[in-house]
Amino acid sequence: MIKWFRKNKKKYPDFWNAYIDHFDTIEKTPINETRFVAFDTETTGFDILKDRVLSIGAVAFKGKSIPVNDSLELYLKQDIFNRDSVEIHEIIKSSTVDKVTELEAIKIFLSYIKNAVLIAHHSNFDKNMMNEMLSRHGLGKLKNKFIDTGVLFNKSKHIIYHENLKDHYSLDDLCKALNVPKVDRHTASGDALITGIVFLKILSRLDKRKHLQWSYLLK
């Protein structure tokens, strides 16, 4: 049985195994000691299969302090190119920033996130985009827990407004509601930082209402 497991494991490259190893021990850390990674992807479009990730931005934090030097900003070499999305993302195919291949990006991203709890705005899209990218390179799916700031925000609203909550809150809506300055909106790392701050602000509102428990956050 053990042998069978090992065999199975060996099919994957070392960096993937190293990533998986982070999930070996399941221990519950308190929320304020947990490493969170807020991230955002900029893509050529919204089709999970056809479109590609152009850049990944991420910030990591424990507690309420976000160290700038532990942030991640990756630009990917992609052949698929969608003229419509250029304007939003301002990442033109031939621009001068250093770019990495998809595989390199995966390596860097996985070694960066480790077993952190991932936070994204409308996280399903970013999650699916990343998983699709992983599967193109013969890898498994992301093992991390996910929190969607869009969903979490709804939970933080006062009960009297529950009947007229919106299903869809854009990151701009949240910035307005939570008074977060919009700096570098629509770049991956700018949005990642905004998402991180939005998350911290929602967290403090939940904390005041005594809802700050893992079961509630991850539900």
Partner: peptide, 10 residues
């Protein structure tokens, strides 16, 4: 590596 966040902080 480019760090846009650091640039904005600056």
């Amino acid at each position: 590596m480019k760090n846009s966040i650091a640039e904005r902080v600056g």
